[in-house]
């Protein structure tokens, strides 16, 4: 599983990174949360608002700071 947080380094992006790290720790996924801060890399995901959460190359949330619980819901295996 690959988890990325997209954001240009603003306060909200740091909040989402922290929430994601907490969710990953609680789920004991044992993967690192990657931070994507370069604008050109961010734009490859076709998001228009940051921060965004990307799981396995898919944008799961954009423009929102999620709570750790909300991140956990997005990280659970999809039916």
């Amino acid at each position: 599983m690959r988890i990325q947080v997209l954001g240009t380094g603003c306060a909200k992006c740091k909040q989402l990174t922290a929430a994601t790290e907490q969710a990953v720790a609680e789920l004991a996924l044992g993967v690192a949360v990657e931070k994507v801060e370069d604008v050109r890399e961010i734009m490859k995901f076709r998001v228009m608002s940051t921060p965004a959460l990307v799981v396995d190359g898919q944008v799961r949330s954009a423009g929102k700071v999620l709570s750790p619980a909300a991140v956990k819901a997005l990280l659970q295996p999809q039916p």
């Binding site: 954001g7 240009t8 603003c10 306060a11 909200k12 992006c13 604008v39 961010i42 734009m43 998001v47 228009m48 608002s49 940051t50 423009g63």
Partner: peptide, 10 residues
């Protein structure tokens, strides 16, 4: 909704 940190992606 707009935040200046999203100005570039927007």
């Amino acid at each position: 909704p707009f935040c200046s940190c999203s100005a570039v992606p927007l």
